[in-house]
Amino acid sequence: MEQRISFLTVAVRDLDASRAFYCRGLGWAAELDVPGEVVMIQAGERLVLSLWAEAAFEAEVGPVGRGPGVAPFTLSHNVATREEVDAVLATAAAAGADPVHAAVDREWGGYTGYFGDPDGYRWEVAWNPGPIGRKVLP
C-alpha cells in the first residue's frame, strides 16, 4: 500500500449547513455536489474532503458513535505566516464557525488556533516554521 491518503470522509448531520459553511462561508469550491447525499471538495493536490450525509454514511460504513466530547482527531490547515492564521480564523468565524481556541504561540515554535465546523469537527489553523510545516504548504 502506498503511503498516502486520497479521501477524508466525514459524516455530517446537515449537508446543506456543511455545504454553506465550506463553500459559501470559507469560499471553497465543490468538485462534486449531490444534493442530499455528498459534497466533495478537492482539499489538496491529491486529497478530497468528502462531506457525506450521515444517513448514507451509516448505511455503508456503520452506525456513528455518539457521546460527550469531540471526535478524537483534528483537521489542519497550515499557512505560511502567523498573520494568515489570524486571517483564516477570522474568515471561519465570519462563516459561523465555533471559535474553539484563539491562536497562541506553541512551545514547539509554531502559532495555532482552532475552530469547529457545523458538526463540531475541530480544525487547527497552523503556522509551523519547521521543515514538516513547510512540506505541506503549496
Rank of each mutant, 00 (worst) to 15 (best):
A59G: 09
P72W: 03
G44H: 01
L51I: 10
A59V: 03
A56S: 07
G65F: 10
A56V: 05
G62T: 01
V64T: 10
A56T: 05
G67Q: 04
H77I: 15
G44C: 05
F73M: 14
A53L: 05
E54Q: 11
W52K: 00
E60W: 12
L49Q: 05
A80K: 09
R46C: 09
G65D: 11
G44T: 04
G44Q: 09
P72I: 07
E54I: 01
R46G: 10
T74S: 10
G62K: 00
A71G: 06
V64D: 03
G65P: 04
H77F: 13
V64Q: 03
R46I: 02
L75H: 01
A43C: 10
V48Y: 08
R66F: 12
N78H: 10
N78S: 14
Q42P: 05
L47A: 12
F57M: 08
A43R: 04
G44N: 07
E58F: 02
V61D: 03
R66I: 09
H77C: 13
V48S: 08
L51H: 08
I41P: 02
M40R: 14
A59N: 12
A53Y: 04
E54G: 02
F73Y: 15
L47Y: 07
V61M: 14
V70N: 11
E60C: 13
P63Y: 06
A43W: 07
N78Q: 10
G44V: 08
L49W: 05
V70I: 10
Q42W: 00
P72Q: 08
F73L: 15
S50N: 15
G62F: 01
A80L: 09
G62Q: 01
R66V: 13
F73T: 12
V79T: 15
V79D: 09
A56C: 01
R66E: 14
L47N: 08
E45G: 08
I41Y: 00
G44M: 06
S50Q: 15
V48P: 00
F57K: 03
H77Q: 15
V61P: 00
T74R: 06
E60Y: 13
Q42S: 08
E45S: 03
L75Q: 04
A59F: 00
G44R: 02
S76A: 15
N78Y: 02
A56M: 07
P68M: 08
A55T: 12
V79L: 10
N78M: 11
A43Y: 04
R66K: 15
V48I: 12
G67E: 06
E45I: 09
V48M: 13
A56I: 02
A71M: 08
S76L: 14
G62N: 01
V39I: 14
P68D: 13
R46V: 06
A55W: 00
G62W: 02
W52M: 10
V79I: 12
A55V: 09
V39Q: 06
A59M: 08
V48A: 10
E45N: 07
W52C: 05
N78L: 11
V61G: 10
A43P: 02
R46E: 14
V70P: 02
I41T: 11
E60G: 15
Q42V: 06
L75E: 06
L47Q: 13
V79Y: 09
A43Q: 10
